[in-house]
């Protein structure tokens, strides 16, 4: 007789919802057969990490999977990274693989000290091994994505680049020791990555002035 049951919008479904209240008020002493099969079905259909992942309906054409050999895995790159072996952990602590980096890269990378929620994900660890070209490519061509975010984090926190909000370039401050006898002990030069034209890191000219306000606080 309740008003809710007269409402045509819900009247059909309401009785099913009400049925579910019974076990709440008077739980079954033993699981009835129907419940056993419902529970087992739930176990069988248990949502996994792929179900819980962020949905993407529209795919940026650049990020569509390219046809590759059938022998290559087609699973997403976000696999769970294997147990951190002691060697790997040490590498993580002292910076990425030294051997494949150039002199410049070695100067840029600092020991990984960021302990945020991304630091232990496989993608962040993978990005720490990418060279600058790859990082900038992802940054400029995958805008608004999680990958872009991680790359910006890698550039800012681990490689010490700074992002200019105004011209959208990444800048790097290089500090070198001056030859003896010079007035200043250190010399500061700035470089920026020219993403629009040459796709190279270029030296800033002498009238470049670093203005903290222009740079994103990442």
């Amino acid at each position: 007789q309740h008003k809710a049951f007269k409402n045509p919008l819900f009247s059909e479904e309401l009785k099913y919802w009400l049925d579910s209240k019974r076990p709440l008020m008077q739980p079954y002493k033993e699981m009835p057969d129907r419940m056993v099969s419902q529970l087992e079905s739930s176990l069988l259909n248990c949502p996994d990490s792929l179900d819980a992942d962020t949905p993407y309906l529209y795919r940026n054409p650049l990020s569509l999977p390219h046809p590759t050999s059938i022998f290559f895995p087609s699973e997403p790159i976000r696999f769970v990274s294997p147990v951190d072996s002691p060697q790997l952990q040490q590498q993580q602590n002292t910076g990425s693989n030294e051997s494949i980096k150039s002199e410049d890269d070695k100067k840029e990378s600092k020991p990984s000290t960021t302990h945020d929620i991304y630091s232990r994900t496989s993608l962040a660890k993978t990005f720490s091994k990418f060279d600058l070209d790859t990082l900038f490519f992802i940054f400029y061509h995958y805008q608004g994505t999680y990958e872009q975010f991680l790359v910006a984090r890698e550039l800012a926190k681990h490689r010490n680049w700074k992002f200019n909000k105004i011209n959208r370039n990444w800048y790097y401050k290089e500090v070198t020791k001056s030859p003896p006898g010079m007035q200043q002990a250190e010399e500061e030069t700035w470089r920026y990555f020219d993403y629009q034209n040459s796709w190279l890191a270029r030296r800033c000219n002498s009238d470049f002035k670093y203005n903290e306000e222009d740079f994103e606080k990442l």
Partner: peptide, 12 residues
């Protein structure tokens, strides 16, 4: 059921 990593919150 945790064989792949999931995208955490992030902000750009």
């Amino acid at each position: 059921t945790s064989r792949s990593e999931v995208e955490p919150r992030f902000f750009t």
